[in-house]
Amino acid sequence: MSGILGKKVGMTSIYDESGKNIPVTVIEAGPCIVSQIRTKDVDGYDAVQLAYGEKKEKHTTNALKGHLHKAGTGPKAMIAEFTRFEKKKSLGETVTVEVFMEGEFVDVVGVTKGKGFQGVVKRHGFGGVGQATHGQHNRLRAPGSIGASSYPSRVFKGMRMAGRMGGDRVKLINLQIVKIIPEKNLILVKGAVPGPKNGFLKIERWN
């Protein structure tokens, strides 16, 4: 595994050599600091912990300050682990976008935009009930039946109903890297990625 942490900048479109229009998401990724090396002997598994992003000192706990001080760096906004990192890394080393190559396929993890309390049509893709005419009213976007009566006399667990939508951790797999601009720490990924602009992202590549 190989990876980096970044921030969503926004979307635009570019053209490839054959003249095809490609929608891309611009991600500002790295440079990240290696903040901890986890080893099999000490932690039970091998991983590299990366830290990324600006954070004010007054908003940082002393525990985090101390942890990052060992790697010789200031407060960071996002910290994540990458198991079985491909290249050997040492504490305090920087990881830049050059861990990836153009044309590779990566997975992008982000937290989706919060949508608030939503009905079943938007949240679960239900079709709604019936038709709009013939005296029908009030039930256009209703969920319909949620189960039988005396048996089972309860609603099954996991029944899809209205509720809070969004704000979930989502991983999109196999997004192609269209372009890498190392001097600006930018990665251009084909298609959309989860989350708002300035949302933190974890970009990883498995082999």
């Binding site: 900048v9 635009t12 570019i14 053209y15 500002e28 601009i181």
Partner: peptide
């Protein structure tokens, strides 16, 4: 517009 988006768009001829 974000300066980084502008930078990417400026590269499209």
């Amino acid at each position: 517009k974000n300066a980084l988006i502008q930078f990417v768009e400026d590269q499209v001829a």
